[in-house]
Computed example of a mutant assay.
Amino acid sequence: MIITIYKVDENLRKKLFSMFENMDNTMILSYLQGHMGHAWVDDLENPTAVQVVVGDFLFYAGNPNTKGAEELLYNLPEDSLVIVNTDEWKNRIETIHKGSIEKFKRYAFKKNAKYLHCEHIQSFLKALPEGYELKKADKTLAYDPSFQELSEDFTSQFESIDDYINRGTGYCILYDGQVVCGASSYSIYDDGIEIEIDTHPNHRRKGLATIAASALILDCLDRGIYPSWDAANLQSVNLAQKLGYVLDDAYDTYYIRNIRHI
Results as ranks from 00 to 15, higher is better:
Y115I: 00
T26W: 00
D222V: 03
S187P: 00
C118F: 00
N65T: 09
L247C: 07
Y107E: 02
G99R: 01
N85F: 05
Q122W: 00
Y60V: 06
R223L: 04
D24Y: 08
A69N: 08
G177L: 01
E149S: 14
Q51P: 13
D138Y: 06
I121G: 01
L239P: 08
D42C: 13
G68P: 06
Y175I: 01
F154M: 11
T155E: 02
Y60N: 08
I101K: 07
E133F: 08
K139F: 08
V54T: 11
Y132H: 12
D79Y: 12
L234M: 14
D144I: 00
D153G: 05
S30E: 08
L150Y: 10
D162P: 07
M23P: 03
V82L: 09
L58V: 07
D249K: 15
N112M: 01
R167L: 15
F20M: 07
R13D: 11
D42T: 13
Y31K: 07
C172E: 11
V180L: 04
C172D: 12
R13G: 12
D190P: 00
F147N: 11
Y245K: 02
K135M: 11
G62R: 02
S228W: 00
Y245P: 13
D249R: 14
G170S: 08
K110C: 06
Y132A: 07
L243P: 03
N11C: 03
N166L: 13
H261R: 15
Y251N: 04
D138V: 06
D79N: 13
Y74F: 13
Y189D: 04
H35F: 13
R257K: 15
E133A: 06
T86M: 04
L16S: 12
L16A: 11
I28K: 11
N65I: 01
S100D: 13
K110A: 09
T4R: 15
E194H: 10
L73N: 09
K110I: 13
W229D: 00
Y60K: 02
V237W: 04
Y107F: 15
H120S: 12
N85K: 15
D219S: 14
S236L: 10
I96C: 03
F57Q: 12
G207D: 03
A240V: 08
D248Y: 09
R167K: 15
L128A: 11
D153K: 11
I197V: 15
I188E: 05
S146W: 04
I173V: 09
L247K: 15
L12N: 08
D191I: 03
D43S: 11
G37E: 03
Y255G: 04
S185K: 10
K111L: 02
P47Y: 12
E149G: 04
D153E: 14
V50G: 06
S123E: 08
N85D: 14
G37V: 00
